[in-house]
Every structure is written in C-alpha cells, then in structure tokens.
Design a protein around this nucleic acid. Structure first.
Lengths: 385, 385
DNA sequence: TCAGACTGTGAATCTCGTC
DNA sequence: TGACGAGATTCACAGTCTG
C-alpha cells in the first residue's frame, strides 16, 4: 500500500518532468469538454486503470455517426439502409475503442454497458480490436419499465462487457476475495440485481424533468469500482453524461477523468460531484487477497522453531505422511522436495497447495501448517513488513 | 385457432400438390443428417414457424483446467467447436443465418443461444442480415459451474437473441397473455431462471458419460415454444444435437425438423424422442422454477444505502463490534472478512451466521442486519428471484 | 430406514513471479 | 521469451456409501 501511494504521488507530482504524467494529472478529477476520441488523444499511453463507458445507442444522438462521404445507398431496400447505419455505428465504436485501448494500462480493464440495440456490435468490435472479454455481466433491473404493447418480453436487463486489454494481460485488477466475502462467502455471479436510477439520486432540472435520459444508478458503478479497482486508481469515462462515474469515484477514493460534449451535462455533473462527501480512507481499505500476502518460506517455520526436523506431517485424513528435513524439504518414500511437490506426488496429482494439505500434531489434534505460516506473517506485519 | 389448425392440415395433406409443401412434409419430425446449410437449402422458402439454434460457441480454451480438488474439468473441446479465427466463425454464422432466414415464415421468429465467446458476433451478424431483434433473453443458471481460479465473476448465465425476420415483420407469434398468466400475472421478463440440464434428463452413454457436452434443459425450450409458437407449428433446429428441441416439440404438440451432422447424436436423439409422451395439456405455471430464499450479498445493503461504510456493527449484547468497509467486508481488530467470518473470529468460533449475529443501530435500538436483508429480499422477489 | 458423509460434475476463453 | 515452480482456487445438485 505504501509503495502504491508513493508511486501515485510521484505520478502526480509537478516535479516529475516526464512528458506523460503531467498530461494526465492536469485532467484528474475534471471533465474534458469535447469529442471523446479527440479528448482521449490528449491522454498518455497506458495511464488509466479502469474505463467505464456507456456509449450512445441511438444513431441520431451522435454527430460523429454520420458517414464521412454522406453517400446515399439504395433506399428502396431497408436492409442496406440499415446496414449503412450499422456500419456508421461500428466505425464510431471502433474509433473510440481504439483510443480507449491506448490509454488503458496493461493491468487495467474496461466496462461497456449497452442494450440489445448496440451491445452485440460493441462486443464484436471489442473482440476485433483485441480486447479480451473476461465476463459479460447482466444488470437485472428490479423495476424495469413495462412493455406497453405486449408484443415482447419486458426488457428487464442491460448487458455489460468486462474486458482486459488483450489475451496476455492476465494481471488485471479483480478483487475476487472482497467480492466473495461481500456475497455471503460465495463467488459473485455474472448477474447483478439493482433498481434503476430514480428518486433523490435522479438528477432533475428546474422543471422537474430528468437531466439525462440514461442516468445509471450509483450502486452499479460502485460495484464495478469495488470489483476492478483499488483506492487511488484512475477511472476514465468517455461518455460522462451527468457524472455518475465521477460521483462514485469521488465517494470511493478513486480519481476520475470525464469526457462529455454537452455543456448542460457537464454543469449538472460538476454541481453533483461538488455535493459528494468522500468516504474515510480507513473504510476504503480492501480485503487483502491471499496472493498479495508476503511469501513465507517453509524453512522459516523450522528456523522459528515452530517445527523441528524429523517431524512427521500428515494430510487431514492421515492417509499420507511425510517427514520434515532440516533443509526445509519433505521426504515421503521415494518422493522428496517442497511441501507442494511432495503433496502432489503422494496423491498422484500435478499440483497441490502444501500449506493447506499438510498437517502437524499440535498436541490436541491435527492442524494445517498454514496456521504456522499465519504466525510468521503476524510477526512480519508487526515488524512493519 | 380452428382456422389455424385447418390451415395446418391443408399444409400437410398429401392432396396438396403445391411443389413446396411436400418438401417440408417429408422432413417433418425427422432429423436430416448433414451440414446445416446444405440441409436448410432443401427446405422451401418461408416454411418454418420458429427456429431454435444452439450453434458452436467457438470457445477458445487454453490448457487443461483443474478444480481445487485437482479433478480435471471435462472441457468442450470437440472438433465442431473449433474455428481458425473470428473471420471464419463470422463466415460460418453468416452462411447458416442466411439459409435460416430464407426458410423462416414472415410470421416466424428465431432464437439463438450463446455465451460471451460468440453471442456478440452472432448478434451483429443477425442485425447485418436484416433480422430484427425483439429481445435478448438471459438464461440465469441456478447451478452454474464456479470459476475455479478466482480470476473472474462466476459465469452464471447464457444469452439468447430472439428476432423476427425483419423490421417490418410485426405479426410474429408471441403468446403474451399466456406468458403473463404463467408469471403471477405480471409480464414475463427478459431474464429467466433455470437449472442446467442434469440428473435423469441428462443423456448418458453406457459408460455413464454424457452423450453431448452442451445438452440444454427441456424447461428452457418449453418456455421458448410456449412463448413463440402455436400447437402444430414447425420448429427447426439446425444444430439438433441430442434433440432437446425435438423432445420438447413432441411433448408440446409442435412439429420439428432437426439437422445434425454426428450420427451418435442422431441415434441418441431418436431414441430419446421415442420415449416422449405428448402432453394433453400444459400448465405453464408448472414450468416456472420455484426458488428457495435467494442469497443476498451483504454488499447489497451498502449499495442500497441501508448501511454506510464506517458503520459500526455490534452483537446483541454489545460485547463485540466491527466496522463496515466499502467493499462489503468487516474489520474488527486484526480480523477481517465476511460478516460470517468476522463474527466467528471475534467469538473464537469456527462458524457464525453474520446475518443474525451482527446488529446495527436503527435510531431506536439495536436490530439484526437480517432485517435489512429482508428489505432486499422483497426487491428480489419482485424480480423473480 | 434414514441421516449424514462422501464423491462426482457442469459450454471455462481460469496464476504469477523469477530466472 | 519460455521454462520452472510456488502456491492459490469451487457451487449446486445428484448419486452413492456408511453408520
């Protein structure tokens, strides 16, 4: 954590004379007004941790959706007319997705939300550009609008695509343990249930009209950020609208960069974010993933006197046993090596977590040697890492 | 209804000498062996009422995957699921979708099921070809396979696209009232909950191995047919597999045309359908899965604003306390984790029900957080579990 | 006979740092 | 960049075995 914070400070310090970082710092926690592709082109390569994008579905909404040559296809065949507008939407999608991919860190991920009108085109374009889909996540609405004509199913969900920068980018941020702990100790699923944005959270103008047609609920953004970012991370939203992403980022101790074309939305978003109170940093501390905990050598247990050479370890059901040697290896019959290797070999497996497999006799029964590792780790924590 | 039935009879009568109908009649309630495009080319224009298609998903799997207990996951690595590139998959999709569109009646609709690996490409291709998407429907699995490495959300759903032949085709079959009646007199939503196919329904060979890697549950097909077809309608399945579509069609008084390349699947499907007894009447409500009390994420309480990060929870007698963090975990001294885990640790127990153990201050005294869970559950009940 | 323990399994794009 | 090895990782059911 300390190193992360200092790295962040270095990143944002005006004393840092690298040409890239100040460029990002200048835009942190602000809204860039303008076209999202042009705005993203101002940001450095690999500079943001998470992108959340809620692109327009409606072809009429975007001035950038017009085909460059304005050519007219045979209007008597609606099929080709349709294809033409799909092609324009695809070009638009491709353009902003390319710009977004450049500014995304290798450890970063992107979220894109859409409905059946656009999400299939968006997803296909993402795959074409090399994004690697991690999940599609369904936002199930507790209170969707009914289908008035009774000619379809009630459209009760929207789809989000969560993707990393490419297939090789494996070390993206995902707070798996926290999600699981927060979900009754079972894995968080790909279908999430939230109410639509309404009530006090929904921004209204002086006439009581909603300011933005598709304002997303803060709860949705909160789960996204809690799942895929760390405190201090930078979240980019190229279709900022009325700033749900910024509001949640501020509340949850993340930084944001917003991009928006409409001044009315920008004004509403700035006023909204002004009212947000950030949470206390202590409440933002996240569950430490097992993978991030300090490594402990099995030999340390011997050196600390927690185990002695010659001790016999067994598995939980005492079906296998192995003897501890002074060099921190185990031996079991013809098998010898690390706790993991011997654990795997005695079972005939390829792999095994020796820390949880092997047990020792604590005088009152068998206990996994992982509990001895925990003792070492507490010593490390007390001595400040 | 009477006119529909008489029209159907006329259609199927050998006395009807139109060149088209006998061509279809010859294939009714049979499986055509071979490539699906070649087989569909044998069928007349505008001759089928519903198409259900479960095309290859083009999974791109790496090496083997093992469960935490080191057992190997039986992957879907069949040759028919392998494609060289997205372009190859798109060409394949385009070819069968074009053939399917020709044989579909103007009043007909098509259902295509897929996962995030392929569904975006499939949906974009459908739009390009002029299909008009009516809904995307999410099949939420009650019992999906977990994510074994803890690097993604549990992939707990698949997506179906429901589309008519083109934008102008407004008089497609949709049994809105029947769906509504079956769903406690509220509109049927676009997210459906069903278990995966297992138990007695799952076809096994003599060795107890599953016959087909991706057999779909009959309940899913039953809802599709009850929603979008009438008795006597013809349902085409170009990727018939082990014949779930045929089995459900027979059970529900629909006709089917199956297309399948693999003889082993054809044999299994024919034997299966032989065993099916048509139903005399169908009570759709019996097809609505009953769900136990849904699991609620503690995180949902924060997202709903019922609790705030930083809130201090106590046990009933205020002997223990813990602070709520933004990620939905608790922290109490050196203990951190889920409400259950921290509840157990502060008491020195192995296990604890955090929902009843932890209390919050409701302004008028202490109340278990379980009462907040009840609020969330009421929302969940409204959206079908 | 029954309750509980134990085993098996499903469309899966499933690690990461170091040398 | 690839090989190596430490070490992290599962939910809901169905079916079988055991006491």
């Amino acid at each position: 954590m300390a190193s992360k914070l200092s790295a962040l400070k270095a990143n944002l310090s005006p004393a840092n004379t690298s040409p890239r970082e100040p460029e990002l710092a200048r835009h942190l926690d602000t809204i860039i007004k303008g076209d999202c592709v042009a705005a993203m082109d101002k940001l450095p390569d690999a500079s943001v941790d998470v992108i959340f994008a809620d692109p327009p579905y409606n072809l009429q909404l975007g001035g950038d959706l017009h085909r460059p040559d304005q050519s007219k296809v045979d209007a008597c065949d609606d099929h080709w007319d349709q294809f033409d507008s799909f092609a324009a939407y695809d070009a638009f999608t491709r353009a902003w997705m390319l710009a977004a991919r450049r500014v995304l860190k290798p450890t970063g991920t992107i979220w894109v939300i859409g409905s059946y009108h656009n999400i299939f085109r968006v997803g296909a374009t993402m795959q074409d550009l090399g994004y690697w889909i991690l999940n599609d996540v369904v936002w199930r609405k507790t209170n969707p609008m009914p289908n008035f004509r009774g000619r379809r199913f009630q459209n009760a969900h929207e789809t989000m695509i969560w993707a990393s920068k490419n297939e090789k980018a494996k070390s993206y941020t995902f707070n798996y343990e926290a999600m699981k702990a927060a979900n009754d100790d079972t894995q968080m699923r790909s279908d999430w249930l939230f109410p639509i944005c309404q009530g006090g959270e929904r921004l209204k103008d002086d006439n009581g009209q909603k300011v933005h047609p598709t304002q997303k609920p803060e709860a949705l953004l909160a789960r996204i950020m809690m799942a895929s970012s760390k405190p201090g991370d930078v979240v980019l939203d190229p279709f900022f609208g009325t700033g749900t992403t910024g509001a949640v980022a501020k509340k949850l101790g993340r930084r944001f960069v917003g991009i928006e074309r409409e001044q009315a939305y920008i004004d509403a978003a700035n006023a909204r974010m002004e009212r947000i109170e950030p949470l206390h940093s202590v409440d933002l501390r996240q569950l430490m993933p097992k993978r991030a905990e300090p490594r402990v050598a099995f030999l340390s247990l011997l050196e600390a006197g927690l185990l002695q050479p010659g001790t016999v370890l067994t598995d939980a059901k005492s079906r296998h046993s192995a003897t501890v040697r002074a060099d921190g290896t185990l031996v079991a019959g013809e098998h010898e090596g690390s706790i993991h290797r011997v654990g795997a070999r005695v079972q005939g497996f390829e792999a095994c977590n020796g820390w949880t497999f092997w047990h020792y006799d604590n005088g009152d029964g068998h206990e996994p040697i992982d509990s001895l590792r925990a003792i070492i780790r507490r010593q490390i924590a007390r001595s400040g890492g």
